[in-house]
């Protein structure tokens, strides 16, 4: 029994380590006055409403949400035909595109960011908001690529064969059989790309940092000039969004299975 007890203790310690900084930020975020104090003095949700009422925070929030939604959608649009192709065709040489799809995620982010900075600066588009959308879509294309590929690999091929025998062409098979089966995986890929794009700093900063403030850029800029409680409330707000999005993926998908695919070992 002591063993079980020790296990629980160890897991509780890790949980404490992971939760402590967020708990302190949550505490700080409800301070009544504009102070960085923990335990908090008084209780106020004013800093949470400030995210939506103060124009600069609201602007950053809208910029971040727009960027995340558009880039995640683009990432799915790029990943879908690619994973379909790998599922449908035998083409070993095309694997190079799979490597390209995973590479931005494996390399240190600063490299991808600098690559985009050089690219957009050379092209003369440096600072245009849409460049950040494309940059984030490429940076996070790995996530829908992994989840959608997993979706394809879990399709029972006899279903597809049955449809084909009945005379359905590729297009009809995709619409009637494949699409409904992989839809949850597309949603998972979108959700992961969305949350990560929302939180991403360096690529957003290097592409549009001087023309458009996303929330992480805004928090960092504010951090350099000292403390404002809105940083704390925004951070907690972001934690909530992340938990919500991942929670939804877990609710409608198979998280342990997705995590197996993460490291590419279950293929």
């Amino acid at each position: 029994m002591t063993v079980t007890w020790l296990r629980r203790c160890y897991m509780a310690l890790v949980a404490f380590f992971l939760a402590a900084p967020l708990a302190v930020v949550a505490g700080v975020s409800v301070n009544e006055k504009k102070t960085l104090l923990f335990p908090p003095r008084g209780f106020s949700l004013e800093w949470y409403t400030a995210i939506f009422t103060e124009p600069e925070w609201r602007g950053a929030l809208i910029a971040s949400l727009g960027l995340a939604a558009l880039s995640a959608a683009l990432a799915v649009i790029v990943a879908l035909p690619l994973s379909w192709f790998f599922w449908r065709r035998v083409a070993p040489w095309a694997r190079v595109f799979q490597v390209l799809g995973v590479a931005p995620f494996m390399l240190p982010p600063v490299i991808t960011a600098l690559g985009f900075l050089s690219f957009w600066a050379t092209g003369g588009f440096y600072g245009a908001p849409w460049t950040a959308v494309i940059s984030h879509a490429i940076f996070f294309v790995t996530l829908p690529l992994v989840t959608i590929s997993l979706g394809f690999s879990s399709i029972d091929r006899s279903l597809v064969e049955a449809a084909a025998t009945m005379g359905a062409d590729d297009r009809t098979v995709f619409r009637t059989v494949v699409a409904p089966l992989i839809a949850p995986y597309m949603v998972s890929g979108f959700a992961f790309a969305f949350v990560l794009s929302l939180n991403e700093y360096i690529v957003a900063y290097m592409t549009v940092g001087f023309t458009m403030e996303t929330l992480p850029v805004k928090i960092f800029n504010a951090l350099r000039y000292g403390y404002t409680p809105t940083m704390a409330s925004v951070s907690i707000f972001f934690v909530a969004i992340a938990v919500l999005a991942v929670g939804l993926v877990a609710r409608y998908g198979d998280l342990p299975k997705l995590m197996g695919a993460w490291t590419g070992e279950e293929r």
Binding site: F192, N199, P216, I219, F220, L223, F238, A242, L255
Partner: peptide, 15 residues
């Protein structure tokens, strides 16, 4: 896993 993934996706700025 939900908790771990949520923390993994957090911005370096927030951490």
């Amino acid at each position: 896993l939900v908790g771990i993934l949520a923390i993994l996706s957090l911005s370096e700025v927030i951490i």
